[in-house]
Design a protein around this nucleic acid. Structure first.
Length: 307
DNA sequence: GAAGTGGAACTCATTGCACA
DNA sequence: TGTGCAATGAGTTCCACTTC
């Protein structure tokens, strides 16, 4: 049932470019050769893979599915070949993320990616600045936003924000029994997500009780660390503090997680469009994000504040 | 090893089509 | 009418395989 491999390769390139002419350029053959190879494959499969339009070709639904499957298979083939040929040219994958996201979510999962892809070396950098794909070798970046990006962007998971503090602070000196008790607390802010407290108060239907007061930190992870040490109450992103909540390093005094419109996206650099190293990482990342999204549907791990 | 054979894959030249 | 795209007919090249 295996189709001609030359035709498969031609199809993969043509589907990527959505142009027989551009595919011909990449494969160093004529447009005619590409057209014939596509026809050979379609005849073999007895399925139309492309819809021929004026000055363009577009994939049919079958073609789209086939392309997706083939891309993964070619990536697998590429990995297998690289392993076999002892070239030891380990590929480098440059990823940019926020410090908090990297430390609390990405790095703890990165070993799984490395185990699956031992030939790829990950270079991870942190920055609060907008990613500059045009003038850097960054393959992909995790950025926060509302979904409007000039690049291919994959939404990773929903973000829920919830106040967190150290267990002792939830009890002393003024027990945090309900959100309005925060009037007695020192609020901890992150420059990276300045509107989280305001959004949370709005979400629970309260005026902003001292939302402008308290300590400010460059990153959310600094605020979480300060919260652990009893400096005040931080506004946590649930999936980034979940581990601390389970271990009891932090507690969520109120069962009041609020959905935040601002969430995380994985942006792919157009410079590396179709690069196997990028596609492998993206697929893995989306898989991990799916696991996180499922976990967030479970009840919030919290210790009830004393009454 | 040389010659013959068949098929895959290619090129060239051309056609058809639709848009500006 | 020119342009830019895909499709197609005819012929060529290359290579694996078979036969002697």
């Amino acid at each position: 049932m295996l189709p001609p491999l030359t035709a498969l390769r031609t199809f993969e390139v043509a589907a990527r470019h959505l142009s027989f002419t551009k595919a011909a350029e990449e494969l160093c053959v004529t447009q005619s050769a590409v057209s014939r190879q596509i026809r050979v494959l379609e005849d073999f499969l007895e399925i139309r893979l492309f819809e021929r339009r004026h000055r363009a070709v577009v994939l049919t639904a079958d073609g789209e599915h086939y392309k997706r499957d083939l891309s993964q298979l070619f990536a697998q083939l590429d990995r297998a070949t690289r392993r076999l040929s002892r070239r030891q040219t380990r590929e480098i994958l440059n990823i940019q993320a926020y410090t908090t996201f990297a430390m609390r979510w990405l790095i703890p999962r990165l070993k799984r990616f490395q185990d699956q892809n031992p030939d790829i070396r990950v270079h991870l950098t942190a920055s609060l600045q907008p990613v500059d794909f045009a003038n850097s070798d960054i393959h992909g970046a995790v950025r926060g936003g509302y979904g409007e990006w000039p690049y291919r962007a994959d939404r990773l998971c929903d973000t829920y924000i919830v106040p967190v503090c150290c267990p002792s602070l939830a009890e002393q000196p003024w027990p945090l029994r309900e959100p309005r008790d925060l009037v007695h607390a020192t609020l901890l802010h992150s420059f990276g997500r300045p509107s989280d407290w305001s959004d949370w108060f709005r979400g629970v239907g309260l005026p902003e009780i001292g939302a402008e007061q308290g300590h400010r930190f460059e990153s959310s992870s600094m605020a979480y660390q300060a919260a652990q040490l009893g400096l005040g109450v931080a506004i946590g992103q649930r999936f980034l503090v979940e581990d601390d909540l389970r271990k009891g390093k932090l507690v969520a005094p109120f069962d009041a997680a609020v959905h935040s419109e601002e969430t995380y996206y994985f942006l792919s650099s157009p410079r590396f469009a179709g690069a196997p190293v990028l596609e492998l990482f993206r697929e893995w990342l989306l898989q991990e994000a799916g696991i996180t999204a499922a976990a967030q549907r479970q009840p919030l791990p919290r210790r009830a504040a004393p009454r």
